[in-house]
Computed example of a mutant assay.
Amino acid sequence: MQQQQWQYFNGTPIKQPIEEAVRQALLKEKAAGNTIKVCIGTDSQVKSRETAFATVIVFVRQGKGAFMYICNQGTKRKMPVKERMLKEVACSIDVAYSLCQLFIAFNVHLEVHADINTNPNFKSNTALKEAMGYIMGMGFAFKAKPHAFASSDCADRMVH
């Protein structure tokens, strides 16, 4: 995996460390009187011999929309579905873990979203128990499809 380069939704690179960008965003939202919930999720796409990953940090303003930061990464390795699903979860947890002290300090609810189907008829379901255990074992709130919009909708649109 390459070095993490975060960007705004419009594609503009975030030039400071992600921790500082998140801290500034939380300060700005608090000053505006907004109640924030943060959802972190990752999605991936396989393209020939490469796998592209997109991780998003979605800031949901209660009743006032949302905004997000995006990080795209890739690997030359092809992975079985279960391994790829767990890699997505690992990417999300890495980000959540690195930022969780900020969210605690600002009293912000954090959820980690997994792009894993709860329906056993889907291939991604093979990773559901491990993903749920991994996320909840790290102390984070867990959401899977169809409630995992950060990974299933936001990151899905950003992966390239």
Score class of each variant (00 low, 15 high):
Gln2Trp: 02
Gln4Leu: 04
Gln5Phe: 03
Tyr8Lys: 09
Tyr8Ser: 09
Phe9Asn: 04
Asn10His: 08
Asn10Leu: 07
Gly11Trp: 00
Gly11Ser: 11
Gly11His: 10
Gly11Phe: 03
Gly11Asn: 13
Ile14His: 02
Lys15Val: 09
Gln16Val: 13
Gln16Leu: 08
Pro17Arg: 07
Ile18Trp: 08
Glu19Pro: 02
Glu19Ser: 12
Glu19Cys: 02
Glu20Met: 05
Ala21Glu: 09
Val22His: 02
Val22Phe: 01
Gln24Ala: 05
Gln24Val: 04
Ala25Pro: 01
Leu26Trp: 06
Leu27Trp: 00
Lys28Phe: 06
Lys28Thr: 12
Glu29Cys: 15
Lys30Thr: 14
Ala31Asn: 11
Ala31Cys: 03
Ala32Ser: 15
Gly33Phe: 02
Gly33Leu: 03
Thr35Met: 09
Thr35Ala: 12
Lys37Gln: 12
Lys37Cys: 04
Lys37Thr: 06
Cys39Met: 05
Gly41Met: 03
Gly41Ser: 13
Gly41Cys: 03
Thr42Glu: 14
Asp43Leu: 08
Asp43Tyr: 05
Asp43Phe: 07
Asp43Gly: 10
Ser44Ala: 15
Ser44Phe: 11
Gln45Asp: 06
Val46Asp: 08
Ser48Asn: 15
Glu50Lys: 14
Glu50Tyr: 07
Thr51Met: 07
Phe53Met: 08
Phe53Ile: 01
Ala54His: 06
Thr55Gly: 13
Val56Gln: 02
Val56Asp: 07
Ile57Gln: 09
Val60Ile: 10
Arg61Gln: 11
Gly63Glu: 04
Gly63Ser: 08
Lys64Cys: 03
Gly65Tyr: 11
Ala66Ser: 13
Phe67His: 07
Tyr69Arg: 05
Tyr69Val: 01
Ile70His: 02
Ile70Asn: 03
Ile70Trp: 08
Cys71Tyr: 00
Cys71His: 01
Asn72Glu: 09
Gln73Ser: 12
Gly74Pro: 02
Thr75Ser: 14
Lys76Cys: 12
Arg77Trp: 10
Glu83Pro: 00
Arg84Ser: 10
Met85Glu: 15
Met85Ser: 15
Met85Gly: 03
Leu86Trp: 08
Leu86Thr: 04
Val89Met: 01
Asp94Glu: 15
Ala96Gly: 09
Tyr97Ser: 10
Leu102Lys: 04
Leu102Trp: 09
Phe103Met: 05
Ile104Asp: 12
Ile104His: 15
Ala105Thr: 06
Phe106Cys: 10
Asn107Met: 11
Asn107Tyr: 02
Val108His: 06
Val108Cys: 04
Val108Gln: 00
Val112Arg: 06
Ala114Val: 07
Asp115Gln: 07
Ile116Thr: 04
Asn117Trp: 03
Asn117Phe: 00
Thr118Ile: 14
Asn119Pro: 01
Asn119Arg: 06
Asn121Ala: 06
Phe122Gly: 14
Phe122Arg: 11
Lys123Met: 11
Thr126His: 07
Leu128Asp: 03
Lys129Pro: 12
Glu130Arg: 11
Ala131Asp: 03
Ala131Thr: 10
Met132Gln: 14
Met132Arg: 15
Met132Asp: 03
Tyr134Cys: 00
Gly137Ala: 02
Gly139Met: 05
Gly139Ala: 13
Phe140Tyr: 13
Phe140Trp: 00
Phe140Ile: 04
Ala141Met: 10
Ala144Tyr: 12
Ala144Thr: 05
Pro146Asn: 04
Pro146Ser: 05
Phe149Cys: 06
Ala150Thr: 04
Asp153Ala: 15
Cys154Asp: 06
Ala155Asp: 01
Ala155Gly: 04
Asp156Lys: 08
Arg157Gly: 15
Arg157Ile: 04
Met158Lys: 11
Val159Ala: 11
Val159Tyr: 01
His160Tyr: 03
